[in-house]
Design a protein around this nucleic acid. Sequence first.
DNA 1: TCTATGATCTGTACATTGTTCAGATAAGGG
DNA 2: CCCTTATCTGAACAATGTACAGATCATAGA
Lengths: 202, 202
Amino acid sequence: MTTARVRDQYHHGDLEVALITTARKFVKKNGLESLSLRQIAHEIGVSPSAAYHYFPDRNSLLAVLGFSLFEELADYQERELVKVAGASARAARERFRVLGRTYFEWAIREPHFFNLMFSDFCLIESSVEQTREENRAYQTLIHCLDDLVETGSMDKKLRASAELLSWSVVHGTTSLIVSGHLDTEDFERALDSLELALGIRK
Amino acid sequence: MTTARVRDQYHHGDLEVALITTARKFVKKNGLESLSLRQIAHEIGVSPSAAYHYFPDRNSLLAVLGFSLFEELADYQERELVKVAGASARAARERFRVLGRTYFEWAIREPHFFNLMFSDFCLIESSVEQTREENRAYQTLIHCLDDLVETGSMDKKLRASAELLSWSVVHGTTSLIVSGHLDTEDFERALDSLELALGIRK
DNA sequence: TCTATGATCTGTACATTGTTCAGATAAGGG
DNA sequence: CCCTTATCTGAACAATGTACAGATCATAGA
């Protein structure tokens, strides 16, 4: 009598991506603190030490996952941005708003992801890749602000530090809301205030 | 022959505060991830389970420590603020600057503290006490902004959301710098930009 | 087609962690 | 002085990250 196969294939075939995908699922549900390599391995149906062929340690897996989330966010933002494409001043203003709102909504929908992205885990290794991914969203912001100047919706004098101020306000309110120090509705208030300060809205 | 005393006193006498103090030391050095209750107990010279008479679990100890750090920050800010007391418009402007700078410098000097304060650990329990402590710093900011309006240094129209905008910019840049997404010098740039936007500086 | 080499995964093992709980010890009031 | 209560110990348990020797597969070269 032949014993039943323990697993369909000894070699998983796609273990590295499976590890990240499963880690993503666990972090999404329970946050990073409770993330266990053994649980991930068990869920995939693989031995506890299998992960160590792809990641030197638990931190590295979290780092890779974190960096991939920056890509996800940028993708999401770009998908939403094309809905308000156009050369008009109105469209440019709307793009600015969408850019901030998507950042915020992403964080509210998946606070554990947001926490991971700005945790120590995404700081360990060379920040080259991360910086590049960030720049994708950051370049989008710069492009948007240029549009605003071009359509005469924003004072040129304020343009110089507008990226810095915008990102700080959006990230700041988002962080404070996610951590429970501000209420949800404060985000739109802050965004209004920012647009007022930048002269985008009267 | 009498055996040497295992410890000076069976009852530590001040174990609760010793636990927090020692936890503070460890978090300051190595962050929250690596904080171990057993290491803390060993450092104090007490059994691993002694802490459970004062805290239900590890998370609670971190929460209490986190909340106490909000107090520390507020104390530090108030100590620095008295150095620029005065009714003049110049003094009010300087107070606003000091308020932001102390927040930032606190975080840069002790990034692990900053991370704990805005982590999930300080979100678990009733946020009543925390809110009160926050309000101490927040009330200081409000008072400062009122001074700015009173001395004619800020447009009254911008006063309404000035707290929100100020805290968001200061916290946002600080968070982004601590997490390595912005450079240190960006803080002063953002603060300049904020003051410009609020009309505090020309 | 056979074989050997390298990649991939298992199994076992170890130290460390958070946490529980029964019992030892001290402190202080009657 | 005793007895109650607060405080701490000690042993135990399950779970975790990680290391390492070996099993298993996949495939390139003969």
